[in-house]
Structures are given as C-alpha cells and as structure tokens.
Design a protein around this nucleic acid. Structure first.
Lengths: 198, 198, 198, 198
DNA sequence: CATGAATGAGCATTCATTCAT
DNA sequence: TATGAATGAATGCTCATTCAT
C-alpha cells in the first residue's frame, strides 16, 4: 500500500522486455516464454505481477498514457484560448504517436477489440484524457471560440477521430509522418467546421 | 468433363464461412476448426479444396478482385476524358471498399505482410488493376489533362495511397463512410496537384 | 465367378502404381491419394477391389509369390537329388530377392508385424512354398541325403532363417549382393550340419 | 545453481516410456500422445525437455552410447595385444547389442536415414567409438599383428560391417543370439583376412 | 521475491476410409 | 465400373497459465 515502495526488479524487467519485443512483433505473436526469456526472469512472474499476458500489455499502456497526459498538460501551459490549446493538444498528440509508434499501434489496433477493455485501467486513463479535451471544448464554447450548437462530445469525437484518421495509415504501414503538415490539414478541417460563424 | 462443373457444396460453404468470420475477427485469429464448424463441413475440406488455410483466403480475395475489376471496367464505359475516368474509378473504388469491407480489410491489412504475396495470383490480379490506372494516367498525359513532369507511376502511387488513406480508418473501425464527401475531398487533393498549370 | 474374366483396368492400374511407388518409398509413407493419382483412377477403387490399402499390398505380394514359386518350380526341373534341389532352390531364392528388392523388403520387413498376416492370403501362399521345401527335405531324408534325427521342420527353419539372415543386411541397406558367394557360404553352413555323418 | 541438479521426474518418465514403447514398435509408429500417456505426463513436456520427438530419441541414444563406450573402455583394460583387444571389443559389442535390443534397433535402423544425423551429437559420440577402433587397428599395424597393406579405415569398415551383418537379423526378428558362436565365426572371418601372412 | 515443473486446450494439417450416384 | 464429395480420428507441436516450494 505504500505508494513509495519501489517496483520489484522482475516486474520492471518484464515491462521493459515486452516494450522491446513490441517494436518488432505484434502482441499476439509474442509469447510469454519469449517475454520471460527476454526479461531474464521466470515466466510465472507475469502472472504474479500482471495477472496475465494482457495485463502486462495494459500496464505498459497505462504507464505510457500517464506520460502522455503529463506531457500534454505541460504543453498546454502558457497558451491562451481554448482553440489554441486544442491546436497544441492535437499537435502533441500527433507528435507523440509519431515518436511512440509501438504504443500508437497498441492503442489504435490491439487494445480495443478485446473484451474487458472498457473495464480496464487503460480505459479509465483514456477517459482522463478525453475529459481534458472536453473541458477545453467547454471553455471554448463559453468563450465563444467554438459553436454552441454542436454537442461538446460530438466535437471531441471529431477531434479524436480526426487524429486517428490522420495518423493511422502512417502507423500501420510504418511510413514517415510530416507532423506539421498533417497538423495543419487536420486543424483546418476541424476548426473550419466548429468555429462559430462570425 | 464439363468444364463448367459447379463448385462442390463444401467448397462454397467454406468460402462463405470464412467471409462471415472475417467480418468480426482478423484472419490469424480465425482457426480452421472455426471455419469448418461455421461452414458445417469437415475441416479436411479446407485442405482438399484450397491447399491450406491461406489458400482459402486467397480464393476469397481473387473472386472479389475479379468482380472488382469487372465492375470498374464497366463503370468506365461511356466516360470521356482520362481525368473523368480516373474520378469515376476512384469513386467506384471507394464505393466497393465501403460495400465489401471484409475484402477491403483483407486487401489493406492481411495480405501484404505475408511472404509469397508478391508471387501469388492475388498480386497478379492486383497488377491488372494498377495497369488500368497507369494507362488512364498515360492517356491523360497525352491529352494534356495531366502534368507530364511527374512520372506516371508516382501519380498512380498518389491515387492509390490516397484511396487507402481515405478509406482505412473507416474500414478498421467499422465506421460509416460518406462516399461522396470522401471522394470529393480526395479528388480535389489529388487533381489540384497533378493537373497541368494553365 | 468366371475365373477367365479379365481383371478390371482400374484394379490393375492400382497394383502397378503401388509397385512403382514402392521402389522409392516404404509402404507406410505412400498414401492412398498417392497411389490413386499415380494410377490415374479414383481413390475409392482401392477399397472396392482390395478392401483397404494393405489389401492392395497383399495382392501385389501374392502375385509376386506366385511368380516366385512358379520360377522355383521350373528351376528345380531336371535336377537330381534332394540336396541338389535344395541348393538350387536357395540360389534362386537369393537371386529373386536380389532382383526384386521391393518385394524382399515387404516380405521381410513390412508384412509380418501386422495383425492379420497369419490369416492373409499371402501367408497361405507362403505356406505353399514352405511345403515344397518340406517335401524336398523329406525326400532327402528318405534318400539318406539328410539326417533323420533332426525334425524336417527344424531343418526348413534353418534353411529359411539362413536365407533371410544372409540377404537381410544387403536388402535393408541397399547393398550389392555377391549371390554366388553368399550362396556358397550359406550352403556350406547349412549342409555341413544337416547332412548325415558318413 | 547446483550443476548436478537432478533431472525432472517428467523428463525421466518420458525417456523411460519411449524406451518401453520401442520394444514393440518402431519409432515412426509411436506417437507423441502415446509416449506421454505411457509416461503419464503431459505431451508438451516432450517439447520442453527434448525439443521434439526425435530429440527424445537422440537423448535415449546418447545415454546408451555413453554407457556403451564406457563399458567397452573398461573391458579392454588389462588385455594385451591389439588383436586381442579387438576380439574383446567385438565380443562386448555383440553382447551389448544382444542385451540392449532397443538401442541396437535404433542405432542400426532408425537413426541413419534421417537428415541431420551426421550433424547430431549422436553421430559425434559414435565417432568417438570408431576412433577407438581405429587406434586399436593402428596399434595392431604397428605391432605387426595386422597387415599394413590395407587401410586402417577399410579394416574398421570390415569390423563394423561384420558386427552389423552378424547381429541385424537376430535383432530385427527378436531371435536369440548365441553370442560366443557369432563372435567366433565373425572373428575368424575377419582376422583370417587381415592378419599378416607369416 | 522468484522459480522449476507441469498441464489443458488448442493449432494447422494429414490420411485412410465411406458412400451416394 | 467408376467417381466426386465428405469425414473422423489422428499427428506433431505450441502456448498461456497454474502451483508447490
């Protein structure tokens, strides 16, 4: 219960091992034997620390998501205006996807199809993020930067869907991404539609 | 002796079964037992009729590709001008992806990573299609509808990449597609760049 | 029931096909599909004509055994004395093993281990042969060419065991056989022991 | 950490089970399910401990070969003269084949035809043995007990071929062996030819 | 905190055999 | 007389997971 107690060595080694392996293989074709051997610990530790193989994946993911959210929070500091903040958020989101393709892949492709996703901690962490977005939108609506005749949740949908739509092909096919270009295109598409008509 | 001998029931049932299963799962996580049970035939028939599990997938695909190409060829009839034909081709391509999501998924995601794809019959059929596109582009260049300072194969790349980029997210996440909208956006992006500056 | 009715084409083709295949593979690794394809007939014919795969093998074998016995019977004509006839019989036996290695292999290795061998037609034909030997021995005993204080069946055992012993290594490892040398060694070993002490 | 850690129970049970089964069936017709059931352990242990089914066979074999070579080395102690040592070696070889028929069978029949045999550890161990023989022969040549106009490797060939030829039939057909008789016959045949003419 | 041992369920694939026509 | 369609029972092998220590 002591939040300060350091994680056991084996637990960390396993997480590190899976992260490594995910760079070259997809989750389903990585075996537990594989992970344990790479980590140089016993296979059974996966079950002790993470419940099961998928648990380890979610642990990895939630670690990443925490960093993701922390990064975005920092990046928003000092920016004025909800739309400006959202622009920055989108840029960082794309940037982080580009620089953490393994996680992007898991998040975009692996994690959703599985039963239990919506009751997972990953999902709870994702919701923290979507809540941040929602609040920015609400702020925008209040400031009259954003139309008030579209529901905030639909707007959030548009933003997240747009990011996904924008990044997915490059991530699936390991293509390079021109972050600034993609960001510009995406923002103009999004904000043209959701900004109030003056 | 009859070259038109109808396909055996089991063969067709298997193809149908895999098509069904692919709607919800990806190929690798569909088992042969799974397919056979869905088809309500014996597992061994997969091997009798298709050589192996992957053979069945390629059968499905090549059936679809033939229909795909036939449809596009018909759709181009009566249209004048290379750019107009290409616009129509893109529309039909998107339309067919939208209405045959299983095949779109296979084509976009499953089939490429596999060793032997480039020596498969599927690949040969795909090349028939890309050749059609190439010829339309060449026609366009000749008629001065399309710039002659970009290689035709690069232009083809742009078109096919664009279609992919446009359709992939909707296909992966089973989202609805506004075909006309996507088509319009895609075409304006493509043709703005490749039409000659007057 | 007409003994003159010719064998159906398919039946013969199958026998021929198996004989061919046995030259390069052992029986267990030849499949029924294999046989039928080589014979260019339907797989089910094996079951119509021979009951099962092993039945076909036994048919082949009994054909061979008939020829074997016929050949030996002819070879014995015009030879005087039981021991001389036995010498000739042994020579021909070795000769035929050497020149029909496929059958030698089946007879020596494949056929015995199987349940049902002793009630097979093959076994009945083999008994015709051993009866010939037994009669030659009895003739020899009567003529005082062969000791009368060893049972004829034991003597037969010694002869057949000796032949087997002599030929087996060459047959298993596909080695060449010096028929005359083997014959001489074997006969001197056998007849030294079984001829009456003068 | 203890390098002498005892072999796991399951590993040993599997080896014992295969040894038992080989008494009545040949390796190819023994299934992994068969082995596991006889050993009363899980089939997967074969793969954990031996890599695959054939690995288990080679384990059995190499255990046996080690004992074989150890026994022969001991038996040669205190014997004077290369030819006398070879005689003893031949006797022990025949004796061990007689008393370990399963291994004799594997060694004579199963192991050779397989691809990879010549790069296996079994083969390396076999070579240790043949080297012992070669050295004895060289010793004999030096002492003028053995002719020096036949290559030592040919002489080794004659000895090993002779043993094989002598034991094979009895081993294949589970017949009894009169070891002393076989030994005497074989040695007289071998050494008549290879001893120097005085 | 960590491990070695063991397992059940499943995997793609093979093959001798049956049967309606 | 012959065939195409179909199948049950294996086969060697893999892997996530459990558990006593």
């Amino acid at each position: 219960m002591n939040p300060q107690r350091p994680e056991p060595a084996g637990k960390l080694k396993l997480a590190k091992a899976l992260r490594e392996l995910l760079e070259n293989k997809d989750f389903n074709s990585i075996t537990t034997a594989n992970i344990a051997k790479t980590a140089d610990v016993n296979e059974a530790l996966i079950y002790r620390y993470y419940g099961d193989k998928r648990g380890l994946l979610h642990y990895l993911l939630s670690n990443y998501l925490d960093a993701f959210i922390k990064q975005i929070s920092i990046d928003l500091k000092g920016i004025e205006g909800a739309v400006n903040k959202l622009r920055k958020l989108i840029w960082t989101h794309i940037y982080l996807y580009d620089h953490n393709r393994v996680f992007a892949k898991i998040l975009l492709l692996e994690v959703r199809n599985y039963p239990g996703y919506f009751s997972s901690e990953t999902y709870r962490t994702v919701k923290v993020y979507t809540k941040i977005i929602l609040e920015l939108i609400a702020e925008g609506v209040e400031n009259r930067e954003i139309r008030n005749d579209i529901s905030t949740s639909l707007i959030r949908q548009i933003i997240l869907g747009g990011i996904e739509h924008t990044c997915l092909p490059a991530i699936i096919f390991n293509r390079e991404m021109d972050i600034d270009l993609l960001h510009e295109e995406l923002c103009s598409a999004i904000f043209k539609g959701i900004q109030p008509i003056k």
